[in-house]
Design a protein around this nucleic acid. Structure first.
Lengths: 241, 241
DNA sequence: ATATACAAGATTTTCGAAAATCCTATTTAC
DNA sequence: GTAAATAGGATTTTCGAAAATCTTGTATAT
């Protein structure tokens, strides 16, 4: 449960050795998180000199991180002109959500067919923790701790959706889902604060319905709910832009 | 039409600027091709000193290329212990083919719905060129030119399958399809020579049936044929291992 | 005999400087 | 006045050396 609150993600392309050891690994994670949460603004040029100061690393680890991030579509490389934070746009968001539906509905079908007790238990545990955190934030939306509380919320939200499909049996589907999750997360981050603190939408109810359908092994219902959940979030975010 | 025969692939993550200019780009492409065709054996450790000699580049561009390749699952990074060529295994092949079916059948459905005249024309052109090359190789399977002829075949095969889904309208589905194509290509390469030169299987007929279904805009039939095509190839490759 | 500690060599990772390239502003030519 | 040429500065890209880490083999202790 002790999670580094500054970066709620597990490494997308898990390194074999124990934990992150190299500077490049660390820069990669910190930078990914900075992009997802918008600390590095979309479209912003990433000057090496500036990154060097920000992350306290030389050119090599920075470049290493940048190249990995490029593979996840979080940064774009302009040959001979450096890197920029991947821009956001309604078209890109729509494609990311569409693709996420393709991947995750298939993964969910497989998980429902193959999942065991441990899978069910993890879903319930994750759903509970997510629900608790949502309630906590809605209750007292104070300024100081809010940021940390939202980060924790994001971590639990991530864990819940990962738990749903974890038993799908396909490393590739899971990896693609991870990448797409992060991409769509960039769009959600802005909208998240408002939605949760002001109770503009009750995603909690949607999550609960999803859990019920999944545990009943009703693949069609679960897939329909998941797809609707994604599309609703997309519409909500689009409405804020 | 003038294609560098040593590397039939377009860059997976297309760089914005004109053509490849940096050393890292060039190393990346050459190395990717070397891995796909097996010149760098699966599981083989990639020692920097050795790569430096092979590609005539310093540590920086090599590392850059390695990191990008990692994102496409063509190499694996062992933290603090360098890189290895991603190993091949029946399990990985099955997952790659399965995932490819998920992505490409969806993309094909969309392309059939949205494709215009240019899309149809490109499919016919690609299918024709592929068929011609297949016949050419089956006719005179001489030793010297065979390698180059097979590379050309691979290039045309790639172009055909890309053409089918090109009109799907989703950059992400196309990129994922590209990545998975390369992964599965690693398994086909070994089997390809034997299959084509000995006429053990007539993929040409499968391709033709696919084109017919697609141009008739019969999505269900086309998707079924594509899925069967992928699975058959998988079985054939598995049979040779 | 087995296990632990240590040293030597190999390899990766990181750094900062040097080279190459791009961008911008100014000048020059027409 | 407009366009091409050019110089200066900024930035990326590449290199090779230095630092850090891992691996292997040998010696020492139990």
């Amino acid at each position: 449960m002790t999670q580094p609150l500054t970066s709620p993600y597990a490494p997308a392309a898990a390194n074999d050795a124990a934990g992150k050891v190299t500077l490049a690994d660390s820069v990669y994670e910190r930078m990914r998180w900075d992009i997802v949460r918008g600390a590095l603004a979309p479209g912003m040029p990433l000057r090496l000199e500036q990154l060097k100061a920000r992350y306290g690393a030389g050119f090599s680890p920075l470049r290493e991180a940048l190249n990995r991030l490029q593979g996840e579509r979080l940064v774009q490389s302009l040959s001979l002109r450096g890197f920029i934070v991947a821009p956001l746009s309604p078209e890109e968001m729509a494609d990311a959500i569409d693709s996420r539906i393709v991947i995750e509905t298939e993964a969910l079908r497989r998980a429902i067919q193959r999942g065991d007790d441990a899978w069910e238990a993890e879903i319930l545990a994750a759903a509970h923790q997510l629900s608790r955190q949502t309630g906590r934030i809605a209750a007292d939306a104070s300024g100081e701790d809010l940021d940390q509380a939202l980060i924790e919320l994001e971590f639990r939200h991530r864990r819940f959706h990962r738990a749903l499909i974890a038993a799908c049996g396909s490393p590739r589907l899971l990896q693609m889902a991870d990448t797409l999750y992060m991409e769509t997360e960039r769009y959600r981050v802005t909208a998240l604060t408002r939605a949760v603190t002001k109770g503009e939408r009750n995603a909690d109810a949607e999550h609960k319905a999803l859990v019920d359908a999944v545990l009943a092994r009703d693949a069609e219902a679960a897939v329909a709910l998941l797809e609707r959940h994604f599309r609703d979030t997309g519409r909500q975010v689009a409405g804020l832009v």
